[in-house]
Design a protein around this nucleic acid. Sequence first.
RNA 1: GGGCGAUUAGCUCAGCUGGCUAGAGCGCUGCCUUCACACGGCAGAGGUCACAGGUUCAAGUCCUGUAUCGCCCACCA
Length: 896
Amino acid sequence: MNRELEKHPDPAELERRWYSWWMEKGLFEGDETAGGDPYTIVIPPPNVTGILHMGHALNSTIQDVLIRWQRMKGRNALWVPGTDHAGIATQNVVEKALAKEGITRDDLGREAFVERVWAWREQYGSTIVNQLKMLGASCDWGRTRFTMDEGLSDAVLEVFVRLYDKGLIYKGNYIINWCPRCRTALSDEESEHQDTNGHLWYIRYPIQGGTSKDYVTVATTRPETMLGDVAVAVNPRDERYRGLIGKTVILPVIERELAVIEDDFVDPEFGTGVVKVTPAHDPNDFELGQRHDLSPLNVMNEDATMNSAAGQYEGQSRETCRENLVADLERLGLLDRTEDHRHAVGHCYRCDTVVEPRLSPQWFVKMKPLARPAIDAVKDGRIKFVPERWTKVYLDWLENIRDWCISRQIWWGHRIPVFSCQDCNHSWAAKGSPTTCPSCGGSKIQQDPDVLDTWFSSWLWPFSVFDWPRDNESLKLYYPTQTLTTASEIIFFWVARMIMSGLEFMGDIPFSEVYIHGTVRDDDGLKMSKSLGNSIDPLEIIEKYSADSLRFSLMMLTATGQDVYVSDEKFKTGRNFGTKIWNAARFMNMHTNEFSGSVHEPKFDIELLSPDDQHILIKLHKTAEECEENLVKFRLNDAAKSLYEFFWHQYCDWYVEYSKEILYGDDEARKENTLLIMHHVFSSALRLLHPFMPFLTEELWHAMGYNTVHESIMIAPFPVALKASQLKSGGVHAAAESYVDAKHDLIREARILRANYNLTPSQKVNYIVKPASDELAQRLMSDQHSVATLLKAESITVDSEYEPDRATPGGLSRLGHVYMPLESLIDIEKELGRLNRQIAKVGEQLDKVTRKLDNMDFVNRAPATVVEHEKERKKGLLEEHEKLQQLIDMLSDNSS
RNA sequence: GGGCGAUUAGCUCAGCUGGCUAGAGCGCUGCCUUCACACGGCAGAGGUCACAGGUUCAAGUCCUGUAUCGCCCACCA
């Protein structure tokens, strides 16, 4: 039964209603027992404590469009949702909350703290999930996974033990990126380089046994680390310092003796050509120190305050120490000079604190052996990146991959499953909680206190969500997945590592296509972020306009892989479009009592098809075709645009207007037929649109009564474009399209005439059409009514012999000339001005074409079709030029 | 230092395999509150496609270089 529709939809109400209905009906659920052709997407798991931002909205909408589209195409579609425990980020959030209560994690102790985090997760963990639901995400929520769930934790342990036993996980003392605020190690990827204005301090190190004028000058960007210097190095080929090698210099302030060593690493061109060697605080120096057998000297604590090795600076922060030390050097006359220096400084990706290179014992994964297969999988095309340019970024990273530091000195995360025996020092990796040492049988067992990098669980996501390592039907059917949709920021963190782990543990790629979408920015081009305060909250947009508006607008804006610039204003596009469709439905419902047709087997009578009917059917199929092609290529904006163009400009602007002639007329058979066509077209277009605007289309599916055939639009078949030959057997001929296009052209010309003479709608006009050919004359004769209706004209006269009078304004269309005989309404000066401007333009183009056609190179070398086209164009331009000249002459006569 | 992307109407952007008479949305101007929709209709104004060379019958599109903006990668202190 058709429902009467209000003037505007009530999105908040209908979105809530349909979402719960979909859930009740289980329409989002994948069924591994159903077999078929699976189409699987695993969601990039958002942080469990996160809230939905525009980036999530974009990312999730893309995935939902893809999954809904594939589901309608009949594939066994499954979108697996879940959240990430986000070790450092979540721990930080909880620590902040504790700070408000005046306590630290140390006050609580490890166990109690972890409990607090779990409690936090219980309280806030479903926020982002609920927000995704508001967006309309059709995830199979019953399969929601969390990276700290038992099953996923089991996968983490399994993987750790396997890699450990294979010798791919090792522990070592190396310089890592250390965040002094989070007090943990970071991976290279977690240290973000930012260009920073700093200084280069030139410091004099006196030479032992020399006079006060004997010193070497060393340049450094971090003077405080000099307290940890253990040598000074020069390049062996550097003539300037030949005599220095083997001598001893005195570290200022601390007055420690430092050997001068030689090493090829030193660049004579940079600074003074003399480098201070600080193995505990710089990765290069660390290696240098190893080559020369120098023991590192760590001068900082975990929180980057100076430790006892820093002598008088002990207890100061690295910043304070720097200031004081520089002042002291200056006072001692040992600061040679200071230069401005711009350089990249690492910052913690979670808290933005300046990262300190720190020597410490950490766990690493050997990456080279894992990288090889991942490189091959992309090189041989098993995995494709869209846009393709990311392939290079991916390969460059993998080809220069470095070992992955996976240990974190925090408490929230998967504890490293390495145990050691206090009695015999044996250590081993194990999945359970061993109580005896496998080597000596001792019972004093200790587990490593560190936890694993968050990404050590996320990299298993495409199979851990299916309960790997447990063998099961879901895993068999849904792995490998098809499409991974994400932002470029996490290609290294996540995408590359998933490919490596998939190949290593499943022996197969985790997905076949990776679609990298753009970054969401504000209208000033800034990346949206909470700290900048420039973010537009997707939930506010949903509340203000609707989830469908948000989705559709985002899709219109997201040119493949380009960044997306959003503003509140832009979301009106989707809202207005929704209302337009809504009102088209409303119009139809005013003329139908009950819809009884079949939406995918149109029942209209092909004998009664008018040219306009055929035209809209052809456009519908072209739209379906474009939609499909663009979705396949991830050109979601083009797919959205073709739907927008079709619904609005083809269907509403032309076909609905055309239909009024019939619906308000009295030919009952044609009335019925027109309505059947409208329902066929509308229901098809709704289905094409459904992936983009799921709620509104479902609402209208029901309101129009289409649910009698398929109870939900979600599971109605996605329209398939018919070929010209198939359309023909359905009574739809290609010629109708060009005729109606020409008719639209004619109507436009006639409207321009009206507009130019400032006629009010009440002023009825008689148009005279002089058709361009006999065939068109025939068609037009039998179609006059529709033209007259669309023009709201008094009458249309088709006259092949018509010769215009003086001062009869006219226009040229593809269908022929259209004239508007008027007596006294012309503002001659104005009209002459317009015509002169027009003729100038036409003249210009005519010159261009003529020159082109006079060029024998063009005529001889360009393809025949192109030359033919230019000839046609010249003909048309000549005709138009002539007509304009005629009009100008007539008007000039008239005025004289 | 290396790489990538962008530069097209006032704004935000399309323009895919060269044939373009350069498009859309928003904004702007004029007319229209006509019985689906003013979140609307009709019409209009607005562009030396960043710059300089080159290839080609033909360049917004391909090549080379320059400039500006943005992003990513990088252990020169």
